[in-house]
Simulated assay, not measured.
Amino acid sequence: MSMFYAGRHRAPSQSSQVGKRASATVVAAAALGLGTATIGAQSATAAPSTSSTESTATFSGLVKQGARGDLVKQIQRKVGVSVDGVFGPATRAGVVRWQRSHGLSADGIVGPRTGTKMRLRSGSATAARSSRTSTRTTNFTGLVRVGSRGDVVKQVQRKVGVSVDGVFGSGTRAGVVRWQRSHGLTADGVVGPRTGSAMGLTGSTRTTTTASRTSTRTSVSSSSLLSTAASLVGTPYVMGGTTTSGFDCSGFTRYVFARHGKSLPRTAEQQRQATTPVSSPRPGDLVFFGAPAWHMGIYAGNGMMYDAGNPRVDTTKRKIWTSNVTYGRV
Results as ranks from 00 to 15, higher is better:
L34C: 13
L34A: 09
G35I: 10
A37L: 10
I39T: 11
G40S: 09
A41I: 08
Q42I: 02
T45D: 03
T45A: 05
A46H: 08
T50C: 13
S51E: 09
T53A: 15
E54Q: 13
S55K: 12
S55Q: 10
T56A: 03
A57S: 13
T58E: 13
S60R: 15
S60A: 10
L62T: 08
Q65D: 02
G66H: 01
A67R: 05
A67N: 01
G69T: 04
D70F: 00
D70L: 03
I75S: 00
Q76V: 06
Q76M: 14
K78P: 00
K78V: 06
V79T: 03
S82T: 15
S82I: 04
V83S: 07
V83K: 06
V83C: 14
D84Y: 09
D84F: 00
G85P: 07
V86R: 13
V86C: 03
V86S: 12
F87I: 04
F87S: 00
G88A: 03
P89V: 07
A90Q: 09
T91I: 11
T91D: 01
R92W: 05
V96L: 06
R97K: 15
R97I: 04
W98V: 08
Q99G: 12
Q99Y: 06
R100M: 10
S101H: 04
S105R: 13
A106N: 07
D107E: 08
V110H: 03
V110I: 11
G111R: 01
P112T: 12
R113C: 05
T114C: 10
G115C: 01
R119I: 03
L120S: 03
S124K: 11
A125M: 04
T126P: 01
A128L: 07
A128R: 09
S130I: 07
S130P: 00
S131M: 01
R132E: 14
S134K: 12
T135C: 05
T137N: 15
T138W: 13
N139V: 14
F140G: 08
F140T: 08
L143W: 10
V144A: 14
R145S: 14
V146I: 10
V146G: 06
G147Y: 07
S148A: 14
S148C: 05
R149I: 06
V152R: 01
V153G: 15
K154I: 13
R158P: 04
V160H: 12
V160L: 03
G161H: 03
V162T: 11
V162C: 05
S163Q: 15
D165F: 08
V167D: 08
F168K: 04
F168L: 07
G169A: 10
S170V: 07
S170M: 00
S170G: 01
R173E: 10
R173V: 02
V176Y: 07
V176S: 05
